[in-house]
Amino acid sequence: MKNKLKVLRAERDWTQAQLAEALEVSRQTINAIEKGKFDPSLPLAFKAARLFKLSIEEIFQDEA
C-alpha cells in the first residue's frame, strides 16, 4: 500500500518523532509506514486522516 505520509509530514515540517507522538506510535512504526514496509490498521489510518484533516483515500492508496 502506497501512502503520502512522508509528503504530508514534510509539508508541515514535522519530524517522524513528532508525527509518532501525535499518532501515539513509535518513530520506527512511522518510518516503516512511510517506506511501505508496514500497513497501518484502519483505526490508525483514521487517526492519521483526522490529524491531517484529509480522507483516508487521500493519504493511503491501494497498489493493486
Binding site: 508541515r12 515540517d13 514535522w14 513528532q18 507522538e21 501525535a22 501515539e24 490529524l51
Partner: peptide, 17 residues
C-alpha cells in the same frame, strides 16, 4: 509542530512515557 496543530501535541510524550 506548527501552531495550527497544537491540539495534536497537547500530550506530546504521554504514550512514550
Amino acid at each position: 509542530m506548527t501552531d495550527n496543530n497544537n491540539e495534536n501535541t497537547s500530550k506530546p510524550t504521554s504514550w512514550q512515557k
